[in-house]
């Protein structure tokens, strides 16, 4: 990741609280890397809110927030762990689509409903998974 551009210092927005830089560590052996910023009234709230702002999808094992020279690690990295099934919001929850496509196609074929109009060739290239 390229170095983050230092954000221009701006006065606290009265409706939003202060701006806090958020840092994360992907794995226990990584250094802190900046992941973004959020608005919160103080460090405690910033730490509380950073988890679900930047670490909902297993992006890291630890987080910290910073403002000016002050740096506050979360101190309880276990709060980033999920103990019940969250696969519904992760890629691994949606691995069976190929089989489902075949089922839906079979249903359409049985109904005689498959649309027979001209489509481009080389569909495998175009139908790559988005990511």
């Amino acid at each position: 990741m390229t170095a983050a551009t230092p954000a221009p210092e701006r006065p606290a927005d009265p409706a939003e609280g202060l701006r806090w830089e958020v840092f994360g560590r992907r794995t226990a052996s990584d250094d802190w890397a900046e992941v973004g910023y959020l608005h919160a009234p103080d460090a405690e709230m910033a730490l509380l809110l950073a988890r679900d702002t930047f670490f909902r999808h297993e992006e890291g094992v630890d987080l910290a927030v910073s403002r000016g020279p002050d740096f506050f690690p979360l101190g309880q990295p276990e709060l980033l762990e999920h103990a019940t099934d969250k696969s519904y919001r992760l890629q691994r929850g949606y691995t069976g689509l190929g089989a489902k496509r075949r089922l839906a196609a079979a249903r359409a074929a049985a109904l005689g409903a498959v649309v027979q109009r001209r489509r481009p060739p080389d569909l495998r290239v175009l139908n790559e998974d988005h990511r």
């Binding site: 496509r101 839906a104 196609a105 249903r107 359409a108 074929a109 109904l111 409903a113 498959v114 649309v115 109009r117 001209r118 489509r119 481009p120 060739p121 569909l123 175009l126 139908n127």
Partner: peptide, 27 residues
């Protein structure tokens, strides 16, 4: 155009139409 190529064949394979009688690929 990219959207058509990615999604129309998938809809058609499921037997789903779109309400545009002219929509078709012109090779």
């Amino acid at each position: 155009q990219r959207f058509f190529s990615l999604y129309i064949p998938k809809l058609w394979d499921m037997g789903i139409t779109v309400p545009d009688p002219a929509l078709e690929y012109d090779a």
